[in-house]
Design a protein around this nucleic acid. Sequence first.
DNA 1: TGGGGCGCAGCGCG
DNA 2: GCGCGCTGCGCCCC
Length: 236
Amino acid sequence: MDKFLIKKKRNPLGLEEEEKNGVEEKEAIWKEIRAEGLHCDYRILFSKSEADGILLELERDIEYLQGDLAKLYVFGKWHNVPRKQVAYGDAGLSYTYSGATFSPKPWIPVLQRVRECVQAVTGHSFNFVLINRYKDGRDRMGEHRDDERELEPRSPIASVSFGAGRDFVFRHCGSKGHSTPSHPTPVWLHLEHGSLLVMRFPTNQHWRHGLPARRGVTGPRVNLTFRDVRGSHVGP
DNA sequence: TGGGGCGCAGCGCG
DNA sequence: GCGCGCTGCGCCCC
């Protein structure tokens, strides 16, 4: 499935005019992001007006976790996460990290629509979406790897962004603490309003990713990361 | 013009 | 997947 995509290079300036609904495979404009063990693809998925509309719906309809459910256990301490989070997905699934377990809320129309677009352009199915809302440039996410034990083996993760553009970094796991010339340098991206980033196997095995603070960013960003979570225990 | 101060950002650590 | 502290750098102002 990793070879599903038809990749075409084009002038990004013509993108909004050429794409009617953002899901035409033949119109796809993918930017390939490659390094040692890093395999990602990036594109604009929604035009500005489409993305504006989706962001409004997300801001209106998404209900984020509050109180203890929004805390995280890291290095022996509980912290409030520096952003808002919630998960939606198929009934019976769950996803855990750093002491926080996400039981998904049922799908709502706006998330179903975005999921269908993502599935159409990637050729992969997703049963779960983790939503992070960064109210401004002070909200952030530290660098981490996603726990692939809870994901379908070798399945990609699709990250869709709405609102303020933010920098995003991949850093090779071996590059912390014991940097040597052989360790790959960090890979920086800018995730734009209406964009899709597909993180493919084996990226998550050797690279951490994070969203650093950016003081100059004043607007909110809502990010949807679609995953295929293992559901072997699902059922009545 | 340049030096110092300040704020932001990168990175290591627990 | 956090927060803190150290450090370096770039920008701004006098």
